[in-house]
């Protein structure tokens, strides 16, 4: 953990102590999306959290999976939410519409967040929006400052030559323009190679086409030589291994890149670190 984060934590602790008296007036909250889970955990008091989404404890997708164990895990349906009666339900724009509508009919306040933001500025906006809802507007500035610091570090590390990097997920899914990954790439001066494959915002690419277009590097979520299913086995295909051994693979865990949130700061720092490793 770096110094900035330590300072932020210290400040957070002070604020928590000061705000304890106000806590009773702040709304209780439940989250139905793994991305809003992360924001809720960073921005609210523990006492406010009534429940988190089913995937909140999944370490592959949830940045704060370890912390999520302290809170109740929701079923994903409307029933337990109604029983918990939180003041506020936060959800993702792609979550089950029927569940949201049912909750709204029951008079529960539901606020939807765009979990696929179009820019880092939108990410910051969402952090502020969430913090305001939770009654902790001051905390948003801390997180935004953290993100800004990481962005500044990334910009300082921009390489002289723009590398073409292909963000490649299971089954050969490629993240294209407008994805969070592309936003991060832009900050460190990388070019998303998806467009070379004719992939616009996202889509599947064949192994042959990837090998043929030959990006400089690939970005994967997992660096281990272990295929838990055929989807990940594709990323370990000998044809890919031949051109992209570990020294040509940027490894950034999915939990840092699936959501627009403060974990993007970690993602950027890791991206810079990986590029440094690969440059050696």
């Amino acid at each position: 953990m770096n110094a900035a984060a330590l300072r932020a934590l210290a400040l957070l602790g002070a604020l928590l102590a000061a705000g304890a008296a106000l806590a009773a007036e702040r709304p209780s909250v439940a989250s139905t999306n793994v991305c809003t889970d992360q924001m809720v955990m960073t921005l609210s008091d523990a006492a406010q959290i009534k429940g988190l989404s089913p995937y909140s404890r999944d370490p592959s997708q949830s940045w704060l999976a370890a912390e999520a164990h302290r809170f109740k895990r929701l079923s994903g349906g409307a029933e337990d939410l109604m029983m918990l009666r939180p003041d506020l339900v936060v959800s993702g724009s792609y979550d089950k519409r029927a569940t949201r509508e049912m909750l709204q009919q029951q008079g529960v306040k539901v606020v939807t967040f765009n979990v696929m933001p179009d820019s880092l500025d939108e990410v910051k906006q969402q952090i502020r929006k969430m913090a305001a809802l939770l009654g902790h507007p001051d905390r948003a500035e801390l997180e935004v400052a953290r993100l800004d610091a990481a962005i500044a570090r990334a910009r300082a590390a921009v390489a002289p030559r723009a590398l073409r990097v292909l963000p490649l997920w299971r089954r050969g899914w490629v993240s294209g323009q407008g994805s969070l990954i592309s936003l991060l790439f832009a900050e460190v001066g990388l070019i998303n190679a998806a467009s070379d494959l004719g992939v616009a915002s996202g889509g599947y690419a064949s192994l042959e086409a990837i090998v043929k277009s030959k990006p400089d590097l690939i970005l994967v979520a997992d660096g281990a030589d272990y295929a838990e299913d055929e989807g990940t086995a594709l990323l370990l295909h000998p044809a890919l291994q031949r051109f992209y051994p570990a020294t040509k693979r940027i490894v950034i865990p999915e939990r840092l890149t699936v959501c627009g949130g403060v974990m993007l700061a970690d993602a950027l720092d890791l991206l810079v670190a990986e590029l440094t490793r690969i440059a050696r």
């Binding site: 999944d58 592959s60 299971r170 089954r171 838990e228 299913d229 055929e230 989807g231």
Partner: peptide, 12 residues
């Protein structure tokens, strides 16, 4: 346990 497993298996 793996959330992608159902999808992966369905394809497979």
């Amino acid at each position: 346990s793996n959330p992608y497993v159902a999808l992966e298996i369905a394809f497979w």
